[in-house]
Amino acid sequence: MRKNSDHHTSTRSTVAHTPDQLLSELVAHLRQNRTQLREEWARRITEAQLLMAMSKEEIFAEATSVYDNYVEALETGTLEALQAYSRNLSERIIPRGVETHEVVGIVLLLRDVLARSLFAKYQGDFDKLNRILDAYEPAANRIAITVAVGFVQERERTIRDQQEAIRELSTPVLQVRERLLILPIIGLIDPHRARQLTEQLLRAIRTNRAKVVVIDITGVAAMDSNVANHLVLTVEASRLLGATVIVTGLSPEISQTLVNIGVDLSKMNTVGDLQGGIEEAERLLGYRVVSVRDVAAIQQP
């Protein structure tokens, strides 16, 4: 009799227990216990001191969205919605200083909370528990990876954007007078930045209709032969556009480097310091700087 009953059950379960059906049973369970599991998860997040940058309410709100997206991903097997959500979430929490380990941590906590609820529900039926876990685990792992990877990618993108912004900021092309640009270069110059600098300068020459450019490299500590040659190329390219370049602030060390590596300095118009460079530029542009007192003296005969 007992054997018969067992047999009966297992026949039924073979029919009812394809992985898809197991997953939908699982999803139904997670939907039914949504409130309680979500709260449990939020509690565990706070307890583990994750997402400390966010308030309790915020954590609960995000936990709700992640939970729903998570269940949906389990149900449909497609990760697109979750991917989009995790990108969006990352975009919001990255500026607040949330770290990668926190994001990985909360997803693993959710995985744990849900697994525990499955243990509780199916503890009477080990066989079924095993099969449920077999269906749940790969899906849950995929989801955890998706969210974590989404976060990391988003963070890398943010870092790249910031680096780009810093590079742009670190090479401002300034217009001091009509037709006169100044490019003060500060800090390290790598080939990428050198190229960006040149492109920016050439475009600025055209848009500002500049005739003279002063490149001040007082703030550049060292220069290798690649960068030095690039500087010469920049001077030559500017000339092709019709602008004269004056280089100022060459330190004794850099001057020595340039001479040692045999950079052709004959093409470079160099002046000791920025002030001298601007004066030379003004001379080239036909400006004459006269003090106001002198002008007044001339005007009153």
């Binding site: 209709r209 190329l233 030559e236 000339r239 092709l240 556009l241």
Partner: peptide, 25 residues
């Protein structure tokens, strides 16, 4: 009228039009 990108490519190729006068427009 040499364009900025064109000037950039030219100097990379070593074409600097030495001894030739140039102007913006």
């Amino acid at each position: 009228g040499i364009q900025p990108e064109v000037a950039f490519a030219m100097v990379q190729l070593g074409l600097t039009l030495e001894g030739v006068a140039t102007a913006l427009d």
